[in-house]
Amino acid sequence: MKKHYINKYLLIIIVLYLCIILFPFIWVFITSFKPEKEIWGDGALKLIPNNPTFTHYQEIFKQNILNSLKNSLIVTFVTTIYVSFVASLAAYAIARLKFFGKNILLSLVLATSMFPQMIIVGPIYNAFEKLGLLNSYAVVLPYSSITLPVAIFILVTHFAKIPTSLEESASIDGASRLTTFFKIILPLALPGIFTAAIIVFISAWNEFLLTITLNPDYAYHTAPVAINYLKGQFQVYWGQVAAATVVVTIPTLIIVLLFQKQIISGLTSGSVKE
């Protein structure tokens, strides 16, 4: 009997939690179909639009949104690929090989992941200005400062889990360290690399400060930056903002639905002692 009550309360907590978590998305989704007039005043609290419309979607596709999605995809994929690769090499070395300065390197990686991003923005801006790299896809390079440390941490944990016996038997067979790495370790580590890649993908997709600073030009805006530019001086067209929000959120939703296992494992690896 008692247990039944507990479950009831728990259910209420869970439902309430889900409502709070999902409400903004649902509300923005509804708004994106409301004509501008119903977004205002009395219509503001209405759940179902009287005259649903697609005009906001048509409007935003006339603007910069498609191009910004393209930019986001380019920037995110490039970052994910090169960061995962570079991080795999480094993580393997850290997890398996003995070399001088390993701890210094690890401290450096850790420090990088901790200090405020703002500190690197000014100097990178100056350097990019001198090199003529402002307003270009070169912005993926400094993306490494936010993604590389996380990727390395996740991968070190994963490499450490692979039994050493495999490498030992391979070296007895006469394979070199590098061959072992590519032929034996890498395939085994693929799930881990994939996990790291997903986390890198999400942080690159969400990046804001570097793009807004280094790529002020429209043509190179990523989706999170472009959507923020939809606001005007005295008035904001919330219908368009809502439509754009829906469009930009969809890729994230897909990633989350498809790869939730990897995301959770990536989030918690390195932070939980097993």
């Binding site: 999400i202 804001f208 989706a223 923020n228």
Partner: peptide
């Protein structure tokens, strides 16, 4: 569902 708020871009969440 819990992953969604974390996964969407902060800028987009702020705009919502």
């Amino acid at each position: 569902a819990s992953l969604i708020p974390w996964a969407i871009p902060t800028a987009v969440a702020a705009l919502m």
